[in-house]
Design a protein around this nucleic acid. Structure first.
Lengths: 195, 195
DNA sequence: ATATTCATGTAACAAGTTACATGATTAG
DNA sequence: CTAATCATGTAACTTGTTACATGAATAT
């Protein structure tokens, strides 16, 4: 029920095609809502038939035609209504955490590899967030930007995404250390299991 | 596909009923995987028919009978196999963030109220995490526990849940400040929109 | 030559949510 | 006397995922 509003919120930044949104839902909005392109196309169709967004077909010569979507007044009202309503609790689904829960069942080295891979991904993501932030700030300091901009929402959610990923980095690094210390201890003749 | 493994991982802590798991999936496991009781009952049935868990009916006099589930060897193997496989990216769904994305469309005071409510919830959650941590540590220091315990997984995921919520607190507080500063500025005669 | 980007879509399937139902027990 | 806890389940519905398909343009 609320991919709907995530899409409407994304359209606050102006007209976008399904394809555009698919990209947006993989960077800025991916901090707090994710979706596949297929879901977006489906949702956009629905929103259009319900009159919450309007579609405009753009003819293109060297590219397939595209439909650009924008918020209607009704859509904006619906979004406002939703926004004032208490949010349901956050849901997180992280397979890596399930695997870590079971870490004691498997080879620590294999787990270390998974953690390293995850670290790389997160660092890429953080780099993208940082570029997006620089682009938003456009030379201003954060303090200036925060009081002066007319749209503070996207910046605030971006900052939440950033700190989430930074915390993730710290946790992964710490976890690698802990697993190494345990593996080390298990390998040491003097400190093995039976003590 | 992987509520399945989240359930198996939860059963590493020993036998549990569907009802037990429903509670667990609302505290410790809720850091990284969530599910409704209905989903759990469905999943447990499936796991039992697939032989990954075994059910044992416990007759009770003053309570409805219950089925206690435990991991089978096959189940444990399946979990190990899953654990060694690369995790898919984390998905987060947070309605509050969608609402914050649209914060510039609505009354800042209403948003402040939503943020305060969220803060209270998080603080409750943190308190529960802290109790669970104390219970795990059982008098040891963290450093002692981390090398000595035979199951470090649940502690590591709990710590990730904790830092997630702590970061959440910081972000909510900061966001309340930012919105207050902006509202203040907008209300001040000298600093209104047209400047 | 090959991969990636642009741009959309259908269909089948899997996972997750909500509403409802039952029914005794114990705590406030 | 009322609410919460224990303990499970069915059925209907909504979301979300995966696989597949098309087809030109540009970048490597």
């Amino acid at each position: 029920m609320s991919l709907k509003y995530a899409v409407l919120a994304a359209l606050l930044n102006g007209e976008a095609s399904g394809y555009d949104l698919a990209k947006v839902f993989d960077v800025s909005v991916a901090n707090f809502w994710s979706s596949t392109p297929q879901q977006l196309y489906r949702e956009l169709d629905r929103l259009a038939t319900d009159g919450l967004v309007q579609a405009r077909v753009v003819q293109q010569e060297r590219r397939p035609n595209k439909r650009m979507f924008s918020l209607t007044g009704t859509g904006r009202d619906a979004l406002r209504g939703f926004t004032l309503t208490p949010p349901r609790p956050t849901t997180i689904r992280d397979e890596l955490m399930v695997k870590i829960q079971a870490v004691d069942e498997v080879d620590p080295d294999a787990m270390r590899a998974l953690l390293e891979e995850r670290l790389e991904r997160i660092r890429d993501k953080l780099a993208r967030y940082e570029r997006l932030r620089d682009h938003m700030l456009d030379g201003s300091t954060e303090d200036e930007y925060l009081v002066e901009t007319d749209q503070v929402g996207p910046y605030l959610t971006l900052m939440r995404g950033r700190s989430f990923e930074e915390e993730n980095v710290r946790w992964c690094e710490r976890t690698i250390e802990v697993l190494a210390a345990r593996a080390d201890r298990a390998a040491r003749p003097g400190g093995a299991e039976g003590d």
